[in-house]
């Protein structure tokens, strides 16, 4: 009996230490990746990165055009994706909360949410790039919008569902039409959560590379023409990191650092928004 008890105690201790080791293992990667990124990224960081164009191989330069390109693409994607996502989420939460269409869209949306992003790139290539005959920043923006939509749909629906029905009833009782009670009352009550959704979507697309590879392609020069290929940070990182030139590789690390800091800042902002929303 004591032997068996000892064995059980031993297994318990082994399992607990394994759990502890697994946690250290998991967190270790975060430290390793961020550590290397900060080290290599900061060593290449200078003012020139933000003021100069991408250089030809073998000379120094900056990342101005991909940074601006990424901003353009992100703004475009949010401008296209947010209205569609918010409206679809509104339908699912306000008008058709329990109807068939909503439950189907909910399921489809969940699948879109985790569909491989490279497939989205192929889709936009088929419907935009191939018919137009050339790569364009516009196609890149639309491809990113396809990734923004499901995130926004999901958070809008979730947040509107949390709005208490008493607010809607109060709005109706003073004679507000349904559309106004949604736009003036419910949106206002759910605002923090909906903004969080958009921020999360931006965080997600700012590092997306795969859908841009064959939609907005790349551009070594300054271009703000949405109808022409456009540079973006992730694609530049991809190209520069795989090149044999030291200058390019160092710029790739700096670009990676910029993206990561942006993504982390966005997720922390989103997190604190949700946090403050809960307290009030």
């Amino acid at each position: 009996m004591t032997a068996r008890y000892a064995a059980r105690r031993r297994n318990d201790v082994i399992a607990k230490s394994l759990a502890f080791a697994a946690t250290v293992f998991g967190l270790g990667w975060l430290v390793l990746i961020l550590g290397v990124l900060l080290w290599k990224g900061f060593s290449g960081l200078s003012l020139a990165v933000f003021t100069q164009m991408t250089p030809p191989p073998g000379s120094s330069g900056g990342l101005l055009n991909p940074i601006v390109g990424s901003l353009f693409l992100t703004i475009l994607a949010v401008a296209i994706g947010t209205p569609i996502g918010v409206l679809a989420g509104t339908y699912m939460a306000e008008y058709g909360r329990y109807d068939r269409l909503s439950s189907v869209v909910r399921f489809i949306n969940d699948i879109l949410l985790s569909a491989p992003s490279i497939v989205v790139g192929l889709f936009i290539y088929e419907v935009m790039v191939a018919p137009m005959g050339h790569f364009s920043g516009l196609a890149g923006g639309v491809a990113l919008a396809v990734i923004v939509i499901p995130v926004v749909v999901r958070t809008t629906e979730d947040m509107l569902t949390l709005v208490p029905n008493a607010l809607r009833e109060a709005a109706t009782s003073i004679g507000l039409p349904r559309s106004m009670s949604i736009t003036r009352i419910c949106y206002r009550a759910a605002r923090a959560g909906m903004v969080t959704g958009v921020l999360l979507a931006v965080a997600r697309i700012s590092g997306e590379t795969a859908p841009l590879l064959f939609t907005s392609l790349n551009n070594q020069f300054w271009s703000t023409n949405l109808n022409a290929p456009m540079a973006s940070l992730p694609v530049i990182i991809f190209q520069f990191a795989l090149s044999p030139y030291k200058d390019w590789q160092s710029l790739a690390w700096t670009g990676a650092l910029i993206i990561t800091l942006a993504v982390l800042a966005l997720s922390i902002t989103a997190r604190s928004l949700v946090g403050s929303g809960k307290q009030s």
């Binding site: 569609i84 409206l87 939509i149 559309s179």
Partner: peptide, 16 residues
């Protein structure tokens, strides 16, 4: 507005 939101929901469906 109702139809607009409905169209957006159907749009998500059409996307897939």
């Amino acid at each position: 507005f109702r139809h607009l939101t409905r169209a957006a929901a159907v749009g998500v469906l059409l996307l897939l």
